[in-house]
Structures are given as C-alpha cells and as structure tokens.
Amino acid sequence: MGVIVKSRLGSLHNLVKTSKKFSIGFTIVLVIAILSIVGFFNSPYHMEGWGIVTEEAMGRQGLAPCLPFYCPNANHVFGTDDMGRDLLSRILVGAHLALIQTVTVVFTSIALGVLMGIAAGYSNTVVEKLSTYLIELLIIIPSMVLAAALIAIIGRGIQSVIIALILTWSPWYARLTYILVRQLRELDFIKICEAMGFSRTYIAYRHIVPNVAPLIFIEGITDSSSVLIEIASINFLIGAASLTSIDLPDWGMIVGYGIRYVRTFWWISFFPGLFIALTALGLILLGDGLSETLSPWLKRRWKLWF
C-alpha cells in the first residue's frame, strides 16, 4: 500500500505541475510560511506585534483600517486594536504560532496514533483490548472541553490547547492504523516473516510502519486544515473568556477577544480571521490535490451518460 502511494505521488515538483489544486494550496501555504518567518523577526511595529503596549500606541486605540475611500492613517493598514497596537504587526508576528501549533498537533498525533494503532493491532489481546478502549474513550472526548480542563490544571497557554488536540486527534489515526494493521497482519508476507521467526517489533518496524505511514500521512495533511480551525476555535474561546487584553499574538485569541468590540471595532476580529481562513483554504487545497492524485478517477470529467 505504502509503495503505491509513493509511486503515484512522485516528486513534489511533479505534483505541483500536474495538480492545479495542489499548486494553489502549496503557494498559499508557502506564502504564509514565508510571512511567518519574516514576521517572527521583523514587522512594522515589532514590539506591539509581540503584545507590548508602547506609549505611542496608547494614543491610537481602535484606529480604523485603511479601506478604499477611507484611510485614517496609512501606517496602519489593518487598523489598530483596543490597546492601540498595530493589527498588521500582530498578525505577522502571530503567523508562526498558527503554523507551529498546527504542525505540532498533526505530526505528534500521527506519530502517537500510528504507535497506538500498531500496539492495538499487532500485539497480544490484552494490549489490544486496552488500546481499543483507550482509543474509543479519547475519540469521544471533545477537544474543546478537554482543553478547558487542561487550562484549569496546567494553566492558560497554548500548551494546554496543543495537548488537548493531540489527545483528541491521535485516536483517529490510531483507529485508522488499527484497521490497516488488522488487514496487513493477515497478509502472506507478514505471515512468512512470522514463520521465519523474526520478532514482532522487527516486523512492525520493517514491514508494517512503512506500509501504514504514507496513508496516515496523507490523511494527516487532509486533516490539517480542520486541525488549524479547531485550534483557532479553542483559542477563540480562550480569547473570548479572557478578562484582560490578550498579549500573545495568536490569531484565534485576537479574534475571540475582539468580539466584545465587534459592533464598533469590527476589524480586530475580521483581519486575523481572514488569515485563518486563507491558511485553512491553502491546507485543504493541498490535501484535496494529494487525494485526487492518489485516486485519479476523481479528477475525470463526468458527463452523465444515461
């Protein structure tokens, strides 16, 4: 299975060339990634971007953004937030947070999920029963409430959100891996290896992981936009719950904190949300392009013939 996936996809260059969706998605994600690196080191009002309220900022609280026909101050294209900080700088500085959170959650969940799935599908029955119970349990727990619980325990901060999401996303990959492993372990090449006396750990490492990992990986990329939005949603709630102004330039938190001003300073919520939407769009196009390349008949133009 794994080999088929690899041979169908070919190189990145090839993918960009053949799939329009993939190339659009790839471009969007690349641009956001470059912006996040640039924004991490430099932005128009870098200190304000990191959440420090400078003295000059105090004077321009809730400055409207630069729209066509109406531009109060060309220095602040997206306007300023309730504390007078430049919104563009905050979005640029916050870009790396969005990407790091998403990437961490997706990759850790995949790794944890594959591990859990193989443990469930390729060891003794006791471990299998326990692991499947754990998987079912974690699938059922909503990430948002778990994040709230973790916030109450280890405190507010993105680590609580990340842990909550890893715990709720990894069981999906674990379940998928478990289903795949159960099919694989019945196949002859695994049975032969077992009969030849190789250890299960060796077989799992040498034959099962390479066959399962690419499929889970594709699934992970397809899911990444959902992960991004879920992270943003939970951060939104944290932002909405916050009693004091948010310093951390997380997009979701800025949107969430901004809704209390939505009737007057609508741009505080609008622009970071736009960036979340764009990034998610890029990621979903990336995933769509990949899965269409994997099952080519999806792409085929259809006329109904009957």
């Binding site: 936009s225 939005i229 943003a232 949603s233 939104f236 949107v255 969430g256 809704i259 939505v262 609508w266 919520s269 609008f270 949300g273 736009l274 979340i276 939407a277 998610a280 769009l281 990621l283 979903i284 196009l285 769509d288 133009r301 259809w302 006329k303 109904l304």
Partner: peptide, 28 residues
C-alpha cells in the same frame, strides 16, 4: 449529477470555502 458543469463547480468551490473558513469568522 452535473459533474463538470457550472453548477457543480460553484457548489464545489462553495463547499470548499465553507469547510476551510472558520465558522466563527463567518458568524462574525
């Protein structure tokens, strides 16, 4: 049913945007 026609393309793009745009943002 109208795969490849305009209706399908519009619906496809619309559903793509609705999935990728955060619902809280649309709600705002």
């Amino acid at each position: 049913l109208y795969r490849g026609y305009l209706v399908d393309k519009v619906l496809y793009v619309a559903s793509l945007l609705l999935i990728s745009f955060p619902r809280f943002w649309i709600a705002i």
